[in-house]
């Protein structure tokens, strides 16, 4: 899931936010949000009795490559470490920030300094600030705030030269040059010219791009765009024209969620609507099914927000194929 999610930045964030909000409305924390610190009173309790029970686990993330990061409260500090599938703490809790392992390495930062990529022994092996490894390379930023890509030996595969980059996905990475975005291949060659305001990751051979000047704003460090993207293929050809009437999210398993007149359906890679917009919520297809939601209780709901804030409208979700 980690790698699947890499391709779902930006354009898909809008729908993600809706789902998070919908979940909050029901009083349920979003399922994939970090488990919030378990009962705070557990922290530090029983400290006096036994050294072995001083460690308190607060939080845990999913397993990735055999390890799961866990947040531990040890007397007065909280640190991330990693457990294996036997539940054994194999990398000592010592990190202020720690990410899931990907391709054998994980981003980590110690409080007060050291940061970079650790191996599965918990040792810092690459001293760079950047993103998780994807397809053998990691996007990193240098002291001049230029982005490039390193390989796993820490050597620059693509020299730092870009204003901004995304991770590699399906062999291409979005890069920003003079405030316009295009795509490079793994040799660093610009294969789709920098011509877009926004160029998202490739997924299913399709990438959302914003051609016209659009309204973008940043909220909680998430960039949200209000424009309607078009979709290009890997040759850079615009295969789905932007349309004011339909907002298409990232492709997954050949289909993409499409918002049409406030309802959600699905389009194929030619932009044709293949599942009509009859849902009030829809998530991407995974493993052959897509989660969809229907609001019961009122015919007058035009926007998503009132549903969230008004508990008398109830959203029910099921799956479509």
């Amino acid at each position: 899931m980690t790698f699947r999610k890499l391709g779902r930045r930006r354009f898909s964030q809008l729908i993600t936010l809706e789902v998070v909000a919908a979940a909050s409305a029901t009083g349920i924390k979003p399922l994939y949000q970090s488990l919030i610190a378990a009962t705070p009173s557990l922290a530090g309790q029983n400290n006096r009795k036994d050294k072995s029970i001083r460690l308190r686990f607060f939080d845990a993330e999913n397993f990735s490559e055999g390890l799961a990061k866990v947040r531990v409260f040890d007397e007065k500090t909280e640190k991330w470490g990693y457990i294996n599938k036997q539940g054994k703490l194999v990398i000592k809790p010592q990190f202020e920030i720690a990410e899931n392992f990907s391709e054998g390495l994980a981003i980590a930062r110690m409080s007060g300094g050291r940061s970079g990529y650790i191996n599965k022994s918990g040792k810092f092996v690459l001293h760079f600030g950047g993103r998780t490894f994807s397809e053998g390379l990691a996007a990193v930023i240098d002291d001049n705030e230029k982005w490039g890509f390193i390989d796993k030996t820490g050597k620059f595969a693509i020299q730092p030269q870009f204003e901004y980059v995304e991770n590699f996905s399906e062999g291409l990475a979005s890069v920003k040059i003079n405030d316009k975005s295009g795509y490079i291949d793994k040799t660093g060659k610009l294969v789709i010219p920098a011509q877009f305001n926004i160029a998202s990751d490739f997924s299913n051979g399709m990438a959302a791009v914003d051609i016209d000047s659009s309204t973008t704003f940043t909220e909680n460090s998430i960039t949200i765009t209000l424009s309607n993207p078009g979709y290009i293929d890997k040759m850079g050809k615009l295969v789905i024209q932007p349309s004011p009437d339909i907002r298409i999210h990232a492709f997954s398993e050949g289909l993409a969620v499409a918002q049409i007149n406030g309802k959600y359906g699905f389009v194929n890679k030619t932009g044709k609507v293949v599942i009509p917009p009859k849902f009030d919520r829809a998530l991407d297809f995974f493993e052959g099914l897509a989660a969809v939601g229907i609001v019961y209780g009122s015919e007058e709901i035009a926007a998503i927000e009132p549903i969230i804030s008004n508990s008398k409208f109830k959203l029910k979700m099921g799956f479509d194929r």
Binding site: I28, I294, F319
Partner: peptide, 13 residues
């Protein structure tokens, strides 16, 4: 619909 809407929230499979 292969699984009827009956849940308050679902995650993807």
């Amino acid at each position: 619909m292969v699984i009827q809407p009956q849940f308050d929230y679902v995650s993807s499979f």
